[in-house]
């Protein structure tokens, strides 16, 4: 599906739980202007793009190209920088050799529950590439403050699985 800048603005705004009115107030433009951006009838002014990107929580490049920046390499956060584990998101990106892309976003709160119940990832996803991934180790890493790109696996068939925490 072709993702236009307007659709990206609308998607990112909704992900942030904002209304067009709220976004227009933050951008100091009219609600009609935001509506026009989202319907691809007009584009935001180039000078306002950094502000818009900041409000929507992406970079200007991501806003324009729609390409997500690669997850940062794993880093360890200081205790005071760490968020509540239940507020974090475990992301799985599976890129198959056939050209299919699957993105899964699983809240850590659910991962913790699944772990308590003794479930493994392959049960949830049905993907054999995730079969031997140790959920407990992932949770342990996150509890020690590790964030970002936790794992990147390339299967013999050419599928790539990337797991990161945000």
């Amino acid at each position: 599906m072709e993702m236009t800048i307007g659709k990206r603005i609308a998607t990112l705004r909704k992900e942030k739980g904002m209304t067009q009115e709220e976004l227009s107030q933050k951008m100091e433009v009219s609600a009609q202007a935001v509506s026009k951006w989202e319907n691809d009838q007009s584009c935001p002014d180039i000078t306002s793009l950094p502000k818009l990107a900041k409000i929507l929580g992406v970079t200007v490049d991501e806003l324009l190209s729609g390409k997500e920046e690669t997850a940062p390499v794993a880093r360890v956060l200081a205790p005071e920088e760490r968020k509540d584990i239940k507020e974090m998101m475990l992301r799985f990106n599976v890129d198959s050799c056939d050209g299919d892309h699957v993105r899964m976003n699983i809240p850590m709160a659910l991962v913790l529950v699944a772990l308590e119940m003794g479930m493994d990832l392959s049960q949830v996803s049905g993907n054999s590439a995730l079969k031997n991934i140790d959920l407990e180790q992932i949770v342990n890493l996150v509890q020690y403050g590790v964030m970002g790109n936790l794992m990147e696996v390339e299967s013999g068939e050419g599928d790539t699985v990337r797991i990161f925490v945000e």
């Binding site: 299919d100 699957v102 993105r103 976003n105």
Partner: peptide, 9 residues
């Protein structure tokens, strides 16, 4: 709200 669980292309 608007939690995107799965996206497949």
């Amino acid at each position: 709200k608007n939690w995107k669980l799965v996206e497949i292309d």
